[in-house]
Amino acid sequence: MSTACEELVDPKQIKLDQIIDKHKHGNGPLIPILQGAQEVYGYLPAHVIKHISKATRIPVARIYGVVTFYAQFRQTPVGRNLINICLGTACHVRGGAKIVETIEKELKIKDGATTEDGRFTLEVIACIGACGLAPVISINNEVHGRLLPESIAGILAKYE
C-alpha cells in the first residue's frame, strides 16, 4: 500500500513545496521560489505558476508578469543542449552577429526557439563576460571562444 501512495505523489511537486516552504515566510520570496521551481522542472509550466500563487497568495497575474519580465525564466522546456550566443559589445565588434546568422542558418531556428528534434535551444544573450575571447558562445555552460563562422558546424556536431 505504501508504495502505491508514494507513486501518486509527484517527486517534483514535493521538491517545489519544500522550496516554497523555505522561502515563503521570508521577505520578497517570489524570485527565489521561481528560480528554485525552474531548477526542478527545467522551465515554469502554467500549473507550477498557479501552484506557487496559491501557496504564497501572490496573485497569479503578478507572478506571470514577473516570469515574463526576467530573461532567466522560461515557459517552454529547453532542448537537450542550450546554446547561448554572446552579443556583448566586444563580441559584436569582433563579428558576433555573423556567428548568430551562421548558427541560425545551421539550425534553422531563431533566437529563443528550440529545434524540432529538441536537440538545441538557441538564446542570444547580452554578455557572458568572456570579452577577451570574443566572439564567444557557450553550449551547456561550456564556453567556446575566438570563433569563426566556419568553425560553428564542427562545434555543434559535438553535441547530441
Binding site: 517570489l30 524570485i31 501572490i58 503578478r62 514577473v66 519580465f69 526576467y70 530573461a71 547580452a126
Partner: peptide, 20 residues
C-alpha cells in the same frame, strides 16, 4: 533573474521585493 534595467537602484529594489 536577468534584466539590465535592474542596475537602476529602484528597479533593483523592486526585484529583491519580488516584483517586475
Amino acid at each position: 533573474a536577468g534584466a539590465f534595467v535592474c542596475g537602476e537602484e529602484t528597479a533593483l529594489i523592486a526585484s529583491i521585493e519580488g516584483k517586475r
